[in-house]
Measured scan of single mutants.
Amino acid sequence: QVASGNGDRDPLPPGWEIKIDPQTGWPFFVDHNSRTTTWNDPRVPSEGP
């Protein structure tokens, strides 16, 4: 069983990049398509309500 969020081996969607926040050391994700950033890994399906 693979733990949720453990998709580091999967490629990011086109136009996405991983960067590290220098203050926290946490990775965040840059979507160059929409010029936005998020803490949520785009490779992990979001949980519904």
Rank of each mutant, 00 (worst) to 15 (best):
Q1P: 10
Q1D: 11
Q1S: 15
V2T: 05
V2G: 06
V2M: 06
V2A: 11
V2W: 04
V2Q: 12
V2E: 04
A3T: 12
S4D: 12
S4Y: 10
S4N: 09
S4K: 11
S4E: 13
S4M: 11
S4I: 12
S4V: 09
G5P: 14
G5Y: 15
N6F: 09
N6C: 12
N6E: 15
N6Q: 14
G7F: 09
G7P: 15
G7I: 15
D8H: 06
D8I: 09
R9I: 14
R9Q: 07
R9D: 05
R9W: 07
D10F: 10
D10W: 06
P11G: 14
L12C: 13
L12V: 12
L12P: 05
P13C: 00
P13F: 02
P13E: 04
P13K: 03
P14L: 05
P14E: 04
P14T: 11
P14F: 06
G15M: 03
G15P: 11
G15A: 02
G15L: 01
G15D: 04
G15N: 12
W16S: 07
W16E: 00
W16Q: 03
W16M: 02
W16G: 03
E17V: 00
E17G: 04
E17L: 00
E17M: 02
I18M: 13
I18H: 01
I18D: 05
I18Y: 09
I18A: 06
I18C: 07
I18S: 13
I18F: 04
I18T: 03
K19M: 08
K19W: 01
K19N: 01
K19A: 07
K19S: 08
K19E: 01
I20G: 06
I20E: 08
I20Y: 08
D21G: 05
D21L: 02
D21M: 09
D21Q: 04
D21V: 06
D21N: 01
P22N: 12
P22S: 10
P22H: 08
Q23Y: 04
Q23H: 02
Q23M: 08
Q23C: 07
Q23T: 04
Q23D: 13
T24V: 11
T24Q: 10
T24E: 09
T24R: 06
G25V: 04
G25R: 14
G25M: 09
G25E: 13
G25P: 08
W26K: 15
W26G: 14
W26L: 07
P27K: 15
P27Y: 14
P27T: 15
P27V: 14
P27F: 14
F28G: 05
F28T: 03
F28R: 10
F28V: 10
F29L: 05
F29C: 03
F29V: 01
V30W: 05
V30R: 03
V30L: 02
V30E: 03
V30Q: 03
D31K: 00
D31L: 00
D31A: 01
H32L: 03
H32A: 01
H32W: 00
H32S: 02
H32K: 00
H32V: 02
N33E: 09
N33K: 03
N33M: 04
N33T: 06
N33H: 06
N33W: 06
N33F: 01
N33L: 03
N33S: 11
S34C: 02
S34F: 02
S34G: 05
S34V: 02
S34K: 02
R35H: 14
R35T: 06
R35F: 06
R35Y: 08
T36H: 04
T36N: 00
T36A: 02
T36V: 05
T36C: 08
T37C: 08
T37S: 11
T37M: 04
T37I: 05
T37R: 02
T37G: 01
T37Q: 01
T38I: 07
W39I: 03
W39E: 09
W39Y: 09
W39G: 01
N40S: 08
N40F: 13
N40W: 14
N40M: 08
N40G: 07
N40E: 12
N40A: 13
D41P: 01
D41V: 02
D41F: 08
D41S: 07
D41R: 04
D41T: 13
D41N: 05
P42R: 03
P42K: 11
P42G: 06
P42T: 00
P42H: 04
P42Q: 00
P42A: 02
R43F: 00
R43Q: 02
R43V: 02
V44G: 10
V44P: 01
V44H: 05
V44A: 02
V44S: 10
V44Y: 07
V44W: 00
V44I: 07
P45Q: 12
P45I: 12
P45F: 11
P45W: 05
S46L: 10
S46T: 13
S46N: 12
S46D: 12
S46F: 09
E47P: 11
E47R: 10
E47A: 07
E47N: 15
E47I: 04
G48K: 06
G48T: 00
G48Y: 09
G48F: 07
G48I: 12
G48C: 09
